[in-house]
């Protein structure tokens, strides 16, 4: 459990003071994958660097696993840092060391004996899927492989918290997905808390269960990923949700379809949760003998299940259709709205 109270960081330049992080209060549960999203300059990178005091906070408190980070002296801070893994956007590997030696570096810092170090490095290399690359130098690796080394290195001292500062921002979409899968695996198998900074909503959607949206050094919106997707309140949040869902206007503009489908009912289904896995559409068709055409929609998968909107046209016996509608409304978590009824 990480708790942050009134955390601020003010950068002072010649004349002006800029609050990169402004009086931030937040708590993150053990085992969460907590995403922080924001545009460049929102202060998210500063925020994550405050957590292990790579930046010294101007004011505020950070408590991590009952240890107050903000009051530690230099020596204590070094020891605590060994328990906090960090993954960087540009990997920050030592080019002069091989893959295995890079991963062994934090173990050397922690003073682990050589034999144990070698064992641990072997396990980590397998964990991140780099077997056979032990003696390669970073310059010989692809971006995705470099980040795997970065992750293995961050995990070397068995940390309880992993900080990811734009860990996938320098990678192509496919590699990003592979790295995100790796992070989810690590989170599940090792049970460590991951705090992840990103400007890509895709990343939040794919692996986070909690999200905080940052703007001008403040958290403007925070909560369960699905809730934030479903009911974005702030303009900036809406923009981020739009990144993956397309705009609302675009989705709800079905006037052109309405003219083509004169029969039956035009229905909007809103998925918020896991019901997509239950083959809802085919269930309705089989159970109630109605015809369904899928007109338009977009469904996306989050860590908490499916989320999205689907427009369908339902045709058939009026009684059956009403039964089908009440089934969806009462038995599932899908929100249903009849937009147009030809009958």
């Amino acid at each position: 459990m990480i708790s942050i109270q009134g955390l601020s960081k003010v950068f002072t330049s010649n004349k002006s003071n800029t609050a990169a992080v402004d009086n931030l209060t937040l708590s993150i549960d053990q085992g969460d994958i907590f995403g922080v999203i924001g545009y460049s300059g929102a202060g998210k990178s500063t925020f994550v660097r405050l957590l292990n005091r790579l930046e010294e906070p101007t004011s505020g408190r950070i408590t991590m696993n009952d240890k107050e980070i903000t009051t530690l002296n230099k020596r204590e801070l070094r020891l605590v840092r060994q328990d906090i893994g960090m993954v960087f956007q540009h990997f920050n590997l030592l080019w002069s060391r091989t893959v295995a030696d890079n991963i062994a570096f934090p173990l050397e810092i922690a003073g682990i004996p050589k034999a144990e170090r070698d064992n641990r490095v072997k396990t980590l290399i397998e964990l991140v899927g780099l077997t056979g690359k032990e003696t390669s130098y970073p310059a010989q690796l692809s971006g995705g492989q470099k980040q795997r080394v970065g992750i293995a290195r961050a995990l070397a001292n068995k940390p309880k918290v992993l900080l990811c500062d734009e860990a996938t921002s320098a990678l192509d979409p496919e590699t990003t997905n592979a790295i995100l899968d790796l992070l989810v695996n690590i989170n599940k198998n090792l049970g460590l808390t991951i705090i992840l900074i990103t400007h890509e909503m895709q990343v939040i959607r794919k692996i986070c269960n909690q999200v905080a949206v940052m703007e001008n050094g403040k958290i403007v919106e925070q909560g369960n990923v699905l809730d934030v997707f479903l009911h974005p309140k702030q303009t900036v949040t809406k923009k981020f949700v739009k990144q993956i869902m397309g705009s609302d206007e675009e989705d709800s503009d079905i006037s052109h379809v309405m003219n083509r489908y004169q029969n039956g009912k035009l229905i909007r289904l809103h998925f918020v949760g896991e019901t997509t896995n239950d083959a809802l559409i085919s269930q309705i068709i089989k159970k109630y003998g109605v015809d369904i055409s899928i007109l338009q929609g977009k469904i996306t998968q989050t860590q908490a299940g499916a989320y999205g909107t689907l427009f369908i046209q339902m045709d058939g016996n009026e009684k059956d259709m009403n039964k089908a509608i009440s089934f969806v409304r009462e038995e599932t978590s899908v929100e249903l709205e009849v937009i147009h009824d030809a009958n």
Binding site: L77, R81, F88, N92, F105, P106, I109
Partner: peptide, 8 residues
């Protein structure tokens, strides 16, 4: 910075 973050 990475080395610092590792507690070096």
């Amino acid at each position: 910075e990475a080395a610092k973050a590792m507690g070096a």
